[in-house]
């Protein structure tokens, strides 16, 4: 039996150490971690524990807490956020996109009221959300014979803090488990090529999406303005203060009449001065209110 030469009592995570880490993560990353997630944080930070040669969580937390390296903060955020993603997650955003927004955008593009439509999938993980958007747009335009005329006018950007998941998204390769989660069979057969247990996404769909590493802590200025922002199941991790800041930043990043989607079970409060709530077929989305300066 293996034994390590360390007194087990000294390496147990103490509640003070966890509180130190909780405070750091909330202040530096804007992310709230409940006590029930302590076990998850310990596991997620195990790689950093090894790399930094720390022999206790107290030592690791002190190292992270005292570090002034932005990369450390970024790595902590990457480690503690959950990469959970589904194709076409929740039903209503896709109906709203297809039945409400795309017909309007097509008209605006045809009449040259707009010269392009920009869509941002914030926190896109392994790509299921931006690729679901791309498939919806591609199908919509193709079915109306508008693909060659208008497809290139839709710009979809997917961002995530983790370069590792973005690399997976860029490969466009998915296993049976991921494919089973939310992807309608007709969409799978139309847009994926199957080899053994691997499904590869059609190049046309992949080319519609630009994937970038981005930390939501940073200013959104360099990303430009968007007509639609999907920021779903991202703000659930944020502290109340950071949620308010995010709502303001999302508002500023939207074009006039721009639309925001949050997760269907998410509470998005404190937005009334910034967004109008719109309802469509039981689903809710948020439309940017005009600036009142």
């Amino acid at each position: 039996m293996y034994r390590v030469g360390v007194d087990v009592m000294n390496i147990n995570i103490s509640s003070e150490e966890f509180e130190l880490m909780q405070r750091y993560i909330e202040e530096e990353c804007g992310i709230s971690i409940g006590n029930d997630k302590a076990y998850l944080i310990e596991s997620r930070l195990s790689g950093m524990l090894r790399e930094l040669g720390c022999s206790s969580y107290g030592e690791l937390y002190n190292h992270i807490y005292n570090s002034e390296d932005k990369r450390v903060t970024q790595r902590v955020i990457d480690a503690i956020t959950t990469n959970e993603t589904l194709w076409f997650r929740d039903k209503t955003p896709w109906a709203i996109l297809e039945e409400e927004l795309l017909p309007l955008y097509v008209e605006q593009l045809k009449s040259r009221e707009k010269d392009r439509i920009r869509i941002w999938s914030a926190g896109c993980s392994t790509g299921q959300e931006p690729y679901s958007i791309a498939m919806t747009i591609n199908s919509f335009l193709e079915e109306r014979g508008l693909k060659s005329e208008l497809l290139y006018k839709f710009e979809i950007i997917g961002t995530d803090i983790s370069p590792t998941v973005l690399d997976m998204a860029k490969n466009g390769r998915y296993d049976n488990i991921s494919i089973m989660r939310g992807l309608p069979v007709e969409c799978r057969d139309r847009y994926f090529k199957n080899e053994g247990r691997i499904w590869t996404l059609d190049r046309t769909i992949m080319d519609m999406v630009e994937l970038k590493q981005f930390n939501l802590q940073n200013s959104f200025m360099l990303l430009g303005k968007f007509d639609i922002i999907f920021c779903r199941y991202v703000m659930i991790y944020f502290s109340p203060e950071f949620k308010v800041k995010m709502a303001e930043k999302l508002h500023r990043a939207l074009n006039t009449e721009g639309v925001l989607f949050v997760g269907s079970s998410e509470m998005f409060s404190g937005h009334r001065e910034l967004f109008d709530t719109e309802e469509y077929r039981g689903g809710v989305y948020y439309r940017k209110k005009e600036e009142t300066l």
Binding site: D175, N176, I177, S178, I179, M180, R181, R197
Partner: peptide, 8 residues
Amino acid sequence: IVAYMTGV
């Protein structure tokens, strides 16, 4: 349940 767990 097991089908969703394994993709089989």
